[in-house]
């Protein structure tokens, strides 16, 4: 191929519809070689961009709330917003609640919101995947607290000692300080 390939043909070649003539031409043509380098970047960028999921409704909500000056809620806040008591919501805003993120084996994770309770900590959490286990057990020495896991993976544990606690879901274990 003596003439420069069309830009579309060049992209075709680089995208996977390989053309031996275009390949040979690129090797011997500095300007086409430079154009091919840019075209490769275009293909990579385009493939990434087109493979991206669209921003979720929650993502857009967080972004809009930032402008309105509302506190950006954590994932757990949104999950629990529907049943948080006003006093608890106020505690979140005031920073009286703390959060934890635990990773178990595989892709199993647990998010926790820890609040000072009457006899220890009140812990609200959510496991992912939601159907990984039907029960959560918090173990601290001889003390055990159990809670059923809802269909959406959420659970509530009351009066958990504010010490080092092992969380058990199914056969998975993870340890954190409350």
């Amino acid at each position: 191929m003596r003439e420069h390939p069309e830009y579309g043909a060049l992209l075709d070649h680089l995208a996977g519809r390989e053309d031996p003539e275009v390949a040979v031409h690129i090797l011997g043509c500095p300007s086409c070689s430079a154009m091919a380098a840019k075209a490769r970047l275009l293909i990579e960028a385009g493939r990434r961009a087109m493979a991206e999921p669209k921003p979720s409704r929650r993502a857009m909500k967080l972004a809009m709330e930032a402008f309105r000056g509302e506190p950006a809620p954590s994932f757990l806040q949104l999950v629990f917003d529907s049943f948080l008591k006003p006093a608890t919501a106020e505690a979140i805003r005031a920073g009286a609640l703390t959060s934890r993120f635990l990773r178990f084996s595989g892709d199993v994770t647990m998010e926790l919101e820890v609040k000072e309770g009457g006899k220890g900590a009140d812990v609200r959490g959510q496991i992912s995947p939601a159907d990984f286990a039907a029960e959560v057990v918090a173990v601290c020495g001889k003390t055990r607290r159990r809670a059923k896991v809802g269909a959406d993976g959420t659970f509530v544990l009351k009066n958990v000692p504010r010490k080092t606690v092992e969380f058990r879901i199914g056969n998975a274990r993870a340890v954190t300080d409350l």
């Binding site: 999921p53 921003p55 979720s56 929650r58 993502a59 967080l62 972004a63 709330e65 930032a66 402008f67 000056g69 950006a72 954590s74 994932f75 994770t109 992912s128």
Partner: peptide, 18 residues
């Protein structure tokens, strides 16, 4: 990062941008 955490990052960047 997991999708929810990535969304948190977006929220934080927006707060910083404001």
């Amino acid at each position: 990062l997991r999708p929810e955490r990535a969304e948190d990052v977006l929220g934080e960047v927006c707060v910083a941008l404001v």
